[in-house]
Simulated assay, not measured.
Amino acid sequence: MALIVKKFGGSSVATTEKIMNVAKRVLSEKQPGDQIVMVVSAMGDTTDDLIKLAEGITKDPYQYTREMDMLLTTGEQVSISLLAMAFKTLGQPAISLTGPMAGMKTNSVHTKGRIVDITPQRVHEELDKGNIVVVAGFQGSDEFGDPVTLGRGGSDTSAVALAGALKADTCEIYTDVDGVYSADPRIVKDARKMKEITYYEMLEMARLGAGVMQPRSVEMGKFFNIPIHVRSTFTNKPGTIIREDYTMEDKDFVIRGVAHDEKVAKIAVLGIPNTPGIAHEIFSALADANIDVDMIVQSIRNIEKNVTDMVFTVATDDLG
């Protein structure tokens, strides 16, 4: 008997056929007495399609961040309702809950929200009734009740945070790859799949561009000390376990893997006064706009005139 949180991404639930296959797989693996919580993303390219709809209204829809969250949270509601129907069709009691219904509380930073509290009382109540609980990932609500999304990959964070709040035995992340590799297997053909990796190593790889996990979800796993099993939706092979430390001898690598990120924009601020406080002025403004800065390079342009150049990188989504 175990309490298990299972997260399925958009490619896993892209069609109604795939949704039925997910439901059948979960039921085939369910042991007597197990309590199952599902966290689900929007179907396939739904989020991208919703963004395109908004771009049909305005070239810069993200200037209206609250309305974008109101729009984007509808994608997960479609997939959770269909998956709950799939379970019921197969004879398994189930219920769908939005992020706020599941007790997911966030700050008020729309489109880039952070989880501030989780009170999953409703989830416990539905599990006690014998339901499989299907929760919308990627979303919560702020103190005003407004919908807030957690950024790209936020369903991973929803799943791990919910697993921690529920004191689950494990959190399983199902995706279109069968684990964490030493490099992107689509580019490096002989990349090695890792049986285990630590939270710290996975966090570093995620921050450097490894798209298999969102960095915040790894942080949540470490905070709650919840083992995270990254595995494939389409095979039954074991995946990669993300945990505090290794349980096997697979730990003697000086380098665990190589990550890359193509969604990076470089910004150069040229000819600014080389005076104390100028860097703070630039980066505090970015911080106030909730924009993360990665690499920073400062170089003297002209010693006599005491001016400098400041170059830094941000995610392309933050470029505008």
Rank of each mutant, 00 (worst) to 15 (best):
K237I: 08
D294I: 00
V134F: 14
P32F: 07
Y64I: 00
A265H: 08
I173T: 02
D142F: 00
A210P: 12
S299A: 11
M248N: 15
K305Y: 11
F253L: 08
G164F: 03
G130Q: 04
G140Y: 14
D49T: 14
Q92T: 05
G277M: 10
I282T: 08
V297F: 09
T89R: 13
I57L: 15
D318W: 06
K251L: 03
S28T: 12
A287G: 11
S108C: 07
P276W: 01
G211I: 01
D309H: 06
G9R: 02
I51R: 13
D176Q: 03
G257E: 11
A94C: 01
K222R: 09
P61N: 03
A165M: 08
E201D: 14
K222N: 06
D48C: 00
V307K: 11
K251P: 00
L53C: 10
V264T: 14
V188R: 00
G239L: 01
A94E: 01
G271P: 09
F224D: 07
G239W: 00
V134Y: 12
Y62D: 11
E244H: 06
M248T: 15
E29I: 00
K112P: 04
K88N: 05
V26R: 07
Q121S: 02
G75K: 11
I272Y: 05
D60W: 12
I241Q: 12
V254E: 12
K237R: 07
T15W: 09
G164A: 06
G140P: 13
K222L: 07
M205D: 15
A84D: 09
G151V: 12
Q214C: 07
H124V: 03
P185L: 11
I51W: 11
D60A: 15
H110R: 01
D190W: 04
L270W: 01
T74Q: 13
G221L: 09
S284T: 14
I226V: 14
D294Q: 02
E219D: 08
I173Y: 03
A161D: 05
I19Q: 06
V314M: 13
P185G: 12
A14W: 02
V134R: 12
K193C: 09
G209R: 01
Q31D: 01
F144C: 02
Y62I: 12
A86E: 11
G56F: 05
K237E: 15
A94T: 02
K167F: 00
V269P: 03
T47M: 08
E304C: 01
G9T: 01
I272Q: 08
V258W: 07
